[in-house]
Amino acid sequence: MAVTAKNISRNEFFLGHKACAGCGASLAVRIALKTLGERAVATLPAGCMSAVGFNFPQLAFANNAIISTFAGTASMMTGIAAGLRRRGEKDVAVVGFAGDGGTADIGIQALSGAIDRNDDILYICYDNEAYMNTGIQKSSLTPFGAATTTTPAGRNIRGNPGKKKNMFAIVAAHGIPYAATASVGYILDYARKVEKAARIRGTKYIHVLAPCPTGWGYDVADTVEIAREAVDCGLWPLQEFEAGEFRLNRKPGNIAGVKDYLKRQGRFRHLTDADMERIAKPEGDR
């Protein structure tokens, strides 16, 4: 049965943590664990969610959870899955929650290895588009033009000169059994992808856009709205890759909304019209 707002578990597995108000990533972790239930084992590398969730003696996970090394999310999950299999544990969801830097930069080697082995794990990348936990430094998933503390917007450089790495395509290129993009703005779509992934054997990857008011520069009440706009304007299409086929889940409705999306975030405040047009062009850098 597909998960809905009415039937989703009332149990909370991630609570009492220290995430910022309006944190998109904590929403992604919370909803995934509610969907997966008490047989989930969560692995989190260094990053926002481990920093806010594992401060002894204030431990915020009600299910089994462990911090991995920064680069070692997927490799630790491989070991956990193997160990639990050897203990005869069945119906277990070995799930990982790593940020954009933990996934696309330092953790990509281990992730690629796990997909290559087709280990039975669900890897969720919560993408807030920079190293937020350490103070908003650029990652390879920071979009073009975004100001971060290591790509400041000044007279000579206008934010990040590079573009956002396409992790979804990279993961799909491995021939993974299941991959999807999602957004905390479309939370049921996300929860259903988590639910579907949990039923598939082998490696699964979900890349969920998780806006960060602290790093992006918008009001803490607007996280879900911003996360929806990113999808609606076409910058973050909701897609799936399953059994070798790509599928677009939702047709972007408002391509013209790109400028509005950019303008309401402090990190893009310095962009010129030309910059914004470059971002809006489907073939352009993102």
Partner: peptide
């Protein structure tokens, strides 16, 4: 890292 995960699983 994998060995740590397996050991954390208790084997």
């Amino acid at each position: 890292s994998c060995a740590i995960g397996a050991s954390a699983a208790g084997v």
